[in-house]
Design a binder for these strands. Structure first.
Ligand SMILES: Nc1ncnc2c1ncn2[C@@H]1O[C@H](COP(=O)(O)OP(=O)(O)OP(=O)(O)O)[C@@H](O)[C@H]1O
Length: 783
DNA sequence: ACCACGGTTTTTTTT
DNA sequence: AAACCGTGGT
């Protein structure tokens, strides 16, 4: 098949908006291809167009294409761009993260390597718990063997594809490592017994599956004629192995990346993967892209000047056609409050001006999540809508994890980890003595803990606790019945469950006793999960629509009933972050770490906390390797800006409970003077300038906190907030109501919460109760 | 079994 | 500063 056979219009369209090097990369046909290029040079665009080209011009079957992205968000963007280019046949392609793609394979074949195909993915929280219980089993002291450190070792080993046996051999008689090896062994055994994998296992077990099952390997090797990997500089060894395996048959592997943007070594990413690609894949073609389309001159030249200080990188000469644009503004602020106020004021100024900027044009980037606090506060005071990404994922909040654990328990009753999580949440009088016994009995009889609960009466050891355990087991089966009884949507089911389990009631009680100030937030989060479920079901329905021409193999993965929808929902909760579901059109300022900003771009970027010790972090300052990774991080941060870059540093900062004095980050000092305007002091040394000189260019003393605007309040929400169904709750204080259980009562208080309302109702002869209006089953009595 | 208290520890970055 | 852990009283 040659290009000549095809309509010139099609080829023109697919090459439109590409420079000659990009076009060359797109048109490349057989054999390995490395696209090595600096920031903003259109690498991602090349992958997208190349995929379209393969299908439209080279007549490659869409299902023969595997495209790996770094985040789920990047995957959905790529999907929709490709769909724009070639239409809905793009549905047949595999586009996603390594983890998401390997899950597809594992869901089909995990039984070949000793898992049930419905295995669960455990999150880092559960990972820690398992490590802890292994440490306890092995009588290892958590002081000497810090849970995080041990888990870090295990995770690193997995990323490097070192299995338990190999780790044991390597550890030899080394005191620490040999014990870690024991924990590693125990940890894997426990996961397997619980039919679970952790995040790393998704890759490791996929490798093991492919390497041990020749027919499975052959199937996918045959299938994937073309494999493309974006952000290749941040792949780890397991991912490298997967790429090799999957592309081996056809040899059409295209990887795209920038060694200067390798910033995930803490997660096992190996920059050598991209540096050695030419050696690794013989007859490899290398294309460099050198024109930057993203940033204005000053931004780009400054970033180039900084990254040039790194040793052992592949030299690139990035240039741009666009003019120099505005200089970078560097602010030396007195402290974090002034830094925050500067940002808030600057954003407000740009938005209210005629510069036609909107909030979504701005992003604030930082090295540590902890730095978001002060910025957040300043934005809130100015009434600027914003959203924070990172930190604790929405799905990782305690209350969300609790309800998800119930959900998992309903579809997989044998999941001991989930059972342990919720058996006493809310309080059911099942304490550690009972749970320990429960675990021991399950272990002894080789059954799941749920099975023991179901037959608790038959275990004399359980004594009086037996009835509580049976009650718990019947709660779960009752929840299961609700799942299969039909007629419910996912969000309705979740809503029902949140009440049935007593989780909501517990939070209501907590709120009443003012024990926990965030009980209300938690209720809101639980309600937010319902919105999330609505959105998820909509997506599922779109996929399941009869006009979607999915291949049978893929269609089998689309949930056909509520039970399957629940499984899919759980899987998404394990794999997705709020960033992945981000609606770009939401008009809010974005606050995120530099790591999570990789691959994104914004009109105006603020980099905060540019102080030595923070950025670069003091830990990295002893090692050249780590110091250079910090510099790459600076490079990534700077190159996110399209038009304007602000960098701020404080003289002293309150962080982690102490105020410390800081000097300006060396990376800032590496920017040539001609690209920078300084405010508030020099980037050099500590010649502390008299503050009064510049103070008029900055906001005055802290303003009296502005009334919190509703806009800001809504935006302070971490997760996207789709329109909630209009609450069908019109109760107001003083209404007379009837409750199915408590009888007649009067409403003392009504407080709106996330599309619902918390009611405080006084019932005759029963007392005061708190309940959520929608689920309470109240009827208003005509007065 | 649960809760309150006090002392200790934490802090990179995340698919 | 805030989150976490273990302890001892109820
Ligand atoms: N040939 C082109 N003409 C005009 N604009 C382009 C061209 N190629 C890419 N761009 C634009 O340049 C910007 C950066 O592109 P892209 O995100 O693909 O770069 P990248 O190399 O993946 O960047 P990074 O490595 O920094 O994530 C995008 O806004 C894209 O639309």
């Amino acid at each position: 098949m040659t290009e000549g056979n095809n309509d010139k219009k099609v080829t023109d369209r697919l090459l439109h908006g590409l420079n000659p090097q990009q076009a060359e990369a797109v048109r490349h046909d057989q054999g390995p291809l490395l696209i090595l290029a600096g920031a903003g040079s259109g690498k991602t665009r090349v992958i997208t167009h190349r995929v379209a080209w393969l299908v439209r011009v080279l007549d490659v079957r869409p299902s023969a294409i595997l495209a790996i992205t770094f985040t789920n968000k990047a995957a959905s963007e790529m999907k929709s761009r490709i769909e724009d280019l070639i239409g809905s046949v793009s549905q047949y392609m595999w586009i996603g993260t390594f983890h998401a793609m390997m899950m597809r394979i594992l869901r089909r074949y995990a039984d070949r390597i000793g898992y049930d195909r419905s295995f669960a993915i455990i999150d880092s929280d559960d990972q820690q718990k398992v490590v802890k219980s292994c440490l306890a089993d092995l009588n290892l002291d958590e002081k000497t063997f810090a849970v995080k450190a041990v888990h870090g070792q295990i995770s690193a080993a997995k990323n490097a594809l070192i299995d338990v046996g190999a780790y044991e051999r390597q550890a030899g008689s080394d005191f620490f490592r040999s014990r870690v090896a024991q924990v590693y062994r125990c940890y894997q055994a426990k996961l397997k017994k619980n039919n679970s994998m952790d995040f790393d296992d998704i890759l490791v077990e996929a490798v093991r599956l492919l390497e041990s099952q020749p027919d499975v390997l052959a199937e996918y090797q045959e299938r994937f004629q073309y494999v493309l990997v974006d952000e290749y500089q941040d792949t780890n060894h397991a991912q490298y192995r997967l790429v090799r395996l999957l592309s081996e048959r056809h040899g059409n592997l295209c990887v795209v990346g920038d060694d200067d943007q390798s910033i995930y070594s803490f997660r096992g990413a190996n920059i050598q993967n991209i540096l050695d690609f030419e050696k690794d894949f013989k007859r490899c073609k290398v294309i460099k892209l050198e024109q930057n389309y993203r940033s204005t001159g000053n931004v780009l030249k400054a970033a180039n000047a900084v990254i040039r200080h790194n040793q052992g990188r592949k030299k690139k000469s990035l240039w741009t056609q666009s003019d120099d644009g505005e200089k970078i503004t560097f602010l030396r602020a007195e402290d974090q409050n002034e830094e925050g106020r500067y940002i808030a004021r600057e954003i407000e100024r740009q938005v209210s001006r005629l510069s036609r900027k909107t909030y979504r044009d701005f992003a604030v980037l930082y090295r540590l999540n902890a730095l978001s606090r002060s910025v957040e506060q300043a934005l809130r005071e100015q009434g600027i809508p914003y959203r924070i990404y990172g930190g604790t994922r929405f799905y990782d909040r305690k209350e969300i994890k609790d309800i998800l654990a119930y959900l998992r328990l309903v579809v997989m009753p044998d999941d001991n980890l989930s059972l342990e999580r919720v058996i006493n949440v809310p309080r059911r009088g099942i304490g550690s003595a009972t749970t320990d016994m429960l675990a021991a009995l399950a272990e002894r009889d080789g059954v799941s803990q749920m099975a023991v609960c179901q037959n608790a009466a038959r275990y004399p050891e359980l004594q009086r606790a037996a009835s509580r355990l049976t009650a718990f087991a019947s709660l779960i089966s009752q929840l299961g019945a609700g799942l299969d009884s039909g007629g419910k949507t996912l969000d309705q089911y979740l809503d029902w469950m949140e009440n049935e389990t007593g989780l909501i009631q517990e939070l209501l009680d907590q709120q009443q006793r003012i024990v926990s100030g965030d009980a209300l937030d938690r209720i809101e989060n639980l309600k937010e999960l319902l919105s999330d479920a609505v959105e998820f079901e909509n997506q599922v329905q779109r996929l399941a629509a009869p006009d979607e021409t999915l291949p049978p193999e893929e269609r089998a993965l689309v949930p056909a009933n509520l039970r399957e929808t629940v499984r899919a929902f759980l899987e998404r909760a394990a794999l997705y972050t709020e960033m992945d579901q981000d609606k770009d059109q939401d008009d809010v300022v974005r606050l995120l770490t530099i790591h999570s900003a990789k691959g994104l771009e914004f009109d105006t970027v603020f980099i905060v906390g540019a102080e030595e010790g923070l950025f670069p972090g003091y830990r990295s300052m002893g090692s050249q390797i780590e110091f250079e990774e910090e510099r790459r991080l600076a490079y990534v941060a700077m190159t996110r800006a399209r038009r304007k870059l602000h960098i701020t540093a404080t003289r002293s900062r309150l962080l982690f409970g102490q105020t410390q004095r800081y000097v300006v980050s060396p990376f800032v000092r590496e920017i040539p003077d001609e690209h920078v305007d300084e405010i508030g002091g020099s980037r050099e040394g500590e010649r502390s300038m008299p503050w009064s000189e510049t103070s008029q260019s900055l906001p005055g003393r802290p303003p009296i906190p502005a009334a919190r605007s509703p806009l800001a309040d809504a935006a302070a929400y971490m997760a996207p907030k789709p329109a909630q169904k209009a609450a069908s709750v019109h109760f107001s204080v003083g209404d007379k109501v009837e409750h199915p259980k408590f009888g007649i009562g009067r409403i003392l208080m009504a407080e709106p919460v996330a599309g619902d309302a918390i009611l405080q109702v006084e019932f005759k002869g029963v007392g005061t109760k708190r309940m959520l209006a929608k689920m309470a089953g109240l009827t208003r009595l005509g007065g």
